[in-house]
Write a protein that binds this DNA or RNA. Sequence first.
DNA 1: GGCATACATGATATGGAATAACATGACAAG
DNA 2: CTTGTCATGTTATTCCATATCATGTATGCC
Lengths: 170, 170
Amino acid sequence: MTSETTPALAEDTALVGFQEHDHENCVDSALAIAESRCKDEGLRLTPVRRKVLEMLLQEHRALGAYAILDRLREAGFGSQPPVAYRALDFLVDNGFVHKIERLNAFVACAHPGATHSPAFMICRKCDAVAEAHSAPAKGALGAAARAVGFEIERTVVEAEGVCPDCTEKA
Amino acid sequence: MTSETTPALAEDTALVGFQEHDHENCVDSALAIAESRCKDEGLRLTPVRRKVLEMLLQEHRALGAYAILDRLREAGFGSQPPVAYRALDFLVDNGFVHKIERLNAFVACAHPGATHSPAFMICRKCDAVAEAHSAPAKGALGAAARAVGFEIERTVVEAEGVCPDCTEKA
DNA sequence: GGCATACATGATATGGAATAACATGACAAG
DNA sequence: CTTGTCATGTTATTCCATATCATGTATGCC
């Protein structure tokens, strides 16, 4: 589901996911950014954590916790659920990885470094996931929240539909 | 996960959204609306389905599938997972119930009758859930989708935070 | 009525997601 | 060296979800 058609579109903003890109480079640079950010902020990007991030970057799609666990086992790490969940917790808490609630699965963040409130487009045919930015608290939801006195701390925004590749094939 | 600490519903009022209301009446009228809509559209609101809807309306908060299953068992229905999931599928497909992805749980729709794309406010302290309307496809996400050719069919919008009651208590 | 069909339910079994609880190891600070 | 903290590992369990097959029930058609 990665690489294939799709012309280059305004690259540097919002979208990564349904477009071609230099994959090798994107994995390496994302890992480098993660390492540097961890160093700066005193976070420990340990081997398990790094491995999980690396494989999510490599796959470039959402992986379930048990798929991650399988790969950890193959790589010689612990293979019980908490091993994966703890690494994922760390990565999610620090913004390196996002959880896709709709799929109960995880993807590497496409915009590392930036603090953001992500939105996702999920293809129901091929499970490809693209990350965009959202500002849900500024629209109708934000108004509703203010009206009743609800304090928004975090938002989940996920659009389900069909990606350009799958539309084309059909 | 959804805590089972409901004090008996002796009162006629409970929290919808985060506001008081005439609970008895709201359950009855919602059931009536559902029945009438099913009749109109040739849908079969069978006993299991009706029971599930009724108990979600009664509880007025998100219930997990197995909590629902427990109640079905008590009411003399089948007690295996598919029984609950099939009823829930029917109710969700027809807009009587929404699934809260963040909680892997289900709530009765607060705006029956209207076709809508709901948004939710979920209190992380007490798990209360309020429903609002959203139009995510009209904002930044919609623009991003159009830009890459992603066809949005459905959206999940869930805000996590603290409800007015819990804010007050703190 | 008898029959075919579609749909609803029931029961079994299994797979995947997530966490509780407890033990060990590595390491830095005092 | 001891203590505290954080990361990892392991066991066990609970909850969420679906595939599969069998049975029942309403409906419409001949």
